[in-house]
Design a protein around this nucleic acid. Structure first.
Length: 577
DNA sequence: GCCGTTTTCGGCCCGACTGTTTTCAGTCG
């Protein structure tokens, strides 16, 4: 079960299409058929609408990349629970064989050959034929190739998990600082999914330009935290750092830096769209630039690449082929919210509940960020494991806040709570307390499977509840989240004027990008809060803002870009003080 | 399998690298 159970079907069908694509690839089918299934899988995975609703309205084929054949298969799955084509495929290919495609340097052709000629059906079989030397003897194979597959297996067995954005950013930051210090690098930037601020990162990509690429590569491979050097050529090198994270470095000429940055930032789907546009204009786009015939007409600068193709600049965060290319062609992209527009943090914990930071420390750190206000939102009384505040301690906290506000110029400290939505759907403080708060954040911390949608909707009906925190309850690394009908929650949020949170903590990022976008499209305003439990936590705002940008949000869609005066005015109209 | 301001058929993104080859296939990003 995932957090939005209406869209479970979307994910299920996406997975089936991906498996069909694997199988077709393995069978040596036309590669464009393979691509078609992969694309359909991606479209379904991104979709926040329930695919069965679209099917009922006969609108499946209006989705780009979904044609008659695939629409029929979706309908088939929705009515019968299976896809015949997929069942057939499963019969033809033994069990977990296709999982082995995740092994680096082992592709569909080689795997098919090993299966056909040597009867390889599992990882165990594969290791065996490597050991006995039989794999090496196959046509087109050789010692080196097998050796590379062997290395691939080692990585595969480490169960190579994706990295959190926070961990990836830290490693990239450190590495870039090191390279800048040790070499005469001109330009250097993270690229790939890290530059797009995806919530998790596979490999870290870094792009640079400088006077001596060999030196840069050598210095790169000597990075103190490098565990192993995977490859070191003249323009490209890969290393493994701490715990097996792969970092790829590419060196390009300054004249191609913009095109290369565009190219290596991706996403792949976005790049394919751009290349098609280039082609339709009689141009060619590659990582070296935009070319008319053999003449490079753009490439030094990333913006020029977009410009010459007739697009306005597309910020990295939204390069996912989710409609941004069409709007960029028409100059209609929204102006995305920026980190510097954030005026305050609307979700923070102090030592009164389960944080390591005092209110004064939080305020001082927030001041360094230039914030106008912060909202202190400690846990309420029934969240005992987090040392939730009974009314008496809450009042004591308010007294301290009053004292601090007299003493400090900025930021203004607002009195809030993260009030628990209890199992029975009531709130953990009476209205008499809630109405005295500047702002109220409500959240679910218990009963994840128990009538969550109803409880949350009921909480939003309360005139004093301003924000619902982490609306799906997921933890990226470890927890699926509530059983919840998120679209219903968005509906009620829009109707009652309740704000939904993008929780900026890197393991939450909840709402996520697609859900935040759907919420905005339904007319819901978004609040970004760090959920800071220590001073460092204040920095997570950048991940929240990045998620908002990935959700296509502008400043006006994010309430904590408002001045305090405007923020107060934007509250629920039925709130009476 | 999808798609159409050149097309309802014939295209479908582009290039590097590697290792096996003696002109190229497979894999990756």
């Amino acid at each position: 079960m995932i957090s939005d159970n209406k869209c479970v079907k979307n994910k299920e069908i996406a997975r089936i299409f991906d498996r069909i694509a694997d199988a077709l690839e393995f069978q040596g089918a036309n590669r464009f058929r393979v691509v078609a299934y992969r694309k359909a899988a991606r479209i379904l995975d991104d979709l926040t609408e329930d695919v069965s609703v679209l099917a009922q309205a006969n609108k499946l084929e209006s989705l780009p990349g979904i044609g008659h054949a695939i629409a029929t298969k979706i309908a088939e799955y929705l009515s019968t629970g299976t896809v015949k084509k997929y069942e057939e495929v499963k019969k033809e290919i033994p069990g977990t064989l296709l999982d082995l495609l995740d092994i680096q340097n082992l592709g569909p052709k080689t795997l098919a050959l090993a299966y056909k000629e040597l009867g390889v059906e599992s990882l165990k079989d594969l290791k065996q034929v490597i050991k006995t030397g039989r794999l090496e003897e196959l046509p087109q194979m050789g010692k080196q190739k097998v050796d590379n597959i062997r290395k691939g297996i080692v990585l595969y067995e480490r169960a190579h998990e994706r990295l959190s954005i926070a961990a990836a950013e830290e490693i990239a930051h450190e590495l870039i600082a090191y390279l800048k210090k040790e070499t005469r690098i001109k330009h250097i930037s993270a690229a790939g999914s890290l530059r797009r601020w995806k919530e998790t990162i596979g490999d870290i990509d870094i792009l640079a330009t400088g006077p001596n690429s060999r030196t840069i590569i050598t210095v790169f491979t000597q990075f103190p935290n490098a565990e192993r050097v995977l490859a070191a050529g003249t323009t490209k090198s890969s290393i493994l750092v701490r715990g097996g994270v792969q970092v790829d470095l590419r060196i390009v000429n300054a004249g191609s830096y913009g095109a290369a940055l565009q190219y290596f930032t991706g996403s792949k789907a976005h790049n394919i769209r751009l290349r098609n546009i280039a082609k339709s204009k009689g141009l060619k786009l590659s990582e070296y630039g935009v070319f008319r015939g053999k003449k490079q007409i753009a490439g030094r600068n990333e913006r020029d690449v977009y410009k010459i193709l007739g697009l306005i600049y597309v910020p990295p965060e939204i390069r996912e082929d989710r409609g941004e290319v069409e709007l960029a062609l028409k100059n209609k992209l929204p102006k995305l919210v920026e980190h510097r527009s954030i005026r305050g943090d609307l979700h923070m914990h102090s030592t009164y509940s389960d944080s390591e930071a005092t209110i004064a420390e939080l305020a001082t750190a927030a001041d360094a960020h230039g914030y106008e206000y912060i909202l202190i939102t400690d846990h309420s009384q029934s969240v005992t494991y987090a040392h939730g505040l009974e009314p008496k301690r809450l009042y004591a906290q308010w007294k301290e806040i009053d004292r601090l506000n007299k003493k400090l110029r900025t930021p203004h400290i607002l009195k809030g709570v993260e009030v628990d939505i209890r199992r029975d759907g009531t709130l953990d403080y009476p209205d008499a307390i809630l109405k005295e708060c500047d702002f109220v954040v409500a959240a679910i911390h218990q009963g994840f499977k128990h009538k969550v949608t109803e409880r949350m909707c009921r909480a939003m009906q309360n005139p004093y509840v301003d924000i619902i925190a982490h609306p799906t309850g997921r933890l990226i690394s470890s927890r699926e989240g509530y059983h919840i009908d998120l679209h219903r929650v968005m509906e009620v949020a829009a109707k009652t004027g309740t704000w939904l949170e993008i929780n900026a903590y890197w393991d939450r990022l909840d709402l996520n990008d697609t859900n935040a976008r759907a919420a905005h499209e339904q007319g819901v305003s978004i609040s970004i809060g760090t959920d800071a439990h220590d001073i460092k936590g204040i920095q997570w705002m950048k991940f929240g803002v990045a998620t908002a940008r990935r959700a296509w949000l502008a400043s006006k869609d994010v309430v904590n870009t408002y001045t305090l005066k405007k923020l107060r005015a934007a509250r629920k109209v039925n709130r009476k003080k």
